[in-house]
Structures are given as C-alpha cells and as structure tokens.
Amino acid sequence: MDIGLLGQYLANGIILGTMYALVAVGFTLFFGVLDVIKFSHGDVLMLGAFTGFTAFLGLEFVGVTDPWVQVLVVTLVAVAGTAFIGAVIARYLVLPLKAAPPLNILLITLMLGTAIREAVRLFYPNGSNPKPFPALLPDASTDLGNFTLRADSVILVAVGLAVIVGLHLLINRTRLGLAIRAVAQDEETARIMGINYTMIVLVTFAIGSGAAAFAGIMNGLYYNEINFGMGLLLGLIGFSAAIVGGLGNLYGAILGGFLFAALQTIGAVALPFASAYKDVFAFGVVIAVMAWKPTGLIAERTSDRV
C-alpha cells in the first residue's frame, strides 16, 4: 500500500475518531454527574443533525445563502436546540428515576432513543428517507501524491478537536467545571457547599447533548447525508468508546473514541477479510476488551461500600 492511501485512511480515521470522542464525552459526563447511562444519546445526536438540517432549509427559504453564515447558524441552532432537549430529558426522565435501579435509566433512555428515532421517521417530512446534507464547507483540496487533503476535512478535524479541548478546559478550568466535578465526586457534599445540584445536572446534560449535536453536524457535513437511523450506531459506538476508555473519565472517552476509529480503519484496511467486516471486528474487539478489563482501560473508581 502506498503512503498516499495510508494518509487517506489516517485522515478518515481522525475525523471518525473526533466524532466518536465527542459522543463518548457526553456518555462520560452524564455518568460522571449522575452515575447513569443515557442511551438515547445517539438519537439525540441524530435529532441535532436534523435540527441543523431544518435550520439550513429555513435559511435557504429566507434567502441567506452565504455558506459561512449558513454553517455557523446551522451549528448554533443545532447545538442550542439539542442542548435544550438534553436538559429536558434529564429533568423529566432521568432525574425522577435517580433512586431507581440504574438499569431502569438505561432502559428508559434506550426506549426514549427508539421513540425519538421512530418519531423522526414518522413525523419529519419524508423522514424515512435519507436527507442530503449540504456541503457548506469549502471543497478545495490539495493533491499530495495519491493523497488528497480536503479543506473541509481539515476544518472539521480542527474545529472538532477545538471543541474537545474546549470541553476539557470547561471541565477543568472554570467555576462551572469545578461545580460539575464536585457533583460528580460527592453529591451530598456538593449540595452542602451551596451548589445547585439540579441546575448542574441539567447543564451537564445540556453540554453533553450539545457536543453530540456538534458531532451530528460533523457527520452530516462529512458524509453529506443524514438519516433517522444514524444515531443508533453512532450512539452505540460512543457508548462503547466511553466504556472501553473507562466510564466517568474524560480522557478515557477521547482515548476510546480514537481507539474505535482506529479499530474500524484497521478492520477495513489491514485485515485479511473483506472490509465489510470492519464493524464486526471493532465490536468484537470491544467485547474482548471488556472480558480483559471489565471496567475499561482507565479503571473507574469503585465505590461499593460494604
């Protein structure tokens, strides 16, 4: 294999890894503050992509055609709208079940994911068919031998990584992040210290869902197509990535995201069987990792008091 093709796969893997990491970060944030898995995350992502798509149609309708304005507005609307939905889900479905067995929240959000998916399929105009997502980023490219470096890919990766770094700074360097970490450490103490617990949980869910919407827009811009079922696989991959990295750990989520993308890429390129088996391979490895390290690569803190 020549170096150009390798570069192409590498670039593709980095884009996928950035997307997966953004989704995994959400899972890890939710788990951090509430010790719950919100499995509807992938479908919330899909909802974000559709919100963005709707915003694009709206812009076209009112005659705003500048692609930079469009991409900015689309992203903002999608992130804000989805962040709001994330907070609503936390408020009405997740918080009420906080005292119930953790599995119930996993189940309720799994069902919620199905409900969102089905609702988009049934109620979005012509929702059961894929939608052509507009290519809003410049499509200039530079040829480096066999390797074509596309400007939109570079922008996607750069902005995606910037969002991840931004989230990292938000969690680790700001007062809000401090409050989130305090709640994650010890809910009771955080309450006593005067932190508005419910507010922090809602904000965290909003942030995680916003990140997912961003990943959804990235996905649309990269593949130029979105569909109602896109969230299921992306959510599952994000979940797997968060778990493989070790739940509740931001670096674990990022590591897991890129690891999964690497597995898929290796599965498609370097293994002797057909590239169609790439997901089979990647999920097979996830299962194997779980057998080897039952609490993820970066172990979760255990808190089983006896």
Binding site: S240, I287, A291, G296
Partner: peptide
C-alpha cells in the same frame, strides 16, 4: 466471560455490541 466479569452498564454494552455485531 465478559458478561459475567462485568457489571451493570458494562455488561449491557457487551450484549448490545454483540447484537449489532
């Protein structure tokens, strides 16, 4: 092996991954 060794959410991801796989 992974289902028995893992707990709760971790076991869930194993069966979900298998389902998709």
């Amino acid at each position: 092996i992974p289902v028995v060794r893992t707990r709760g959410h971790y076991a869930a991801v194993v069966t979900i991954a298998f389902s998709v796989l």
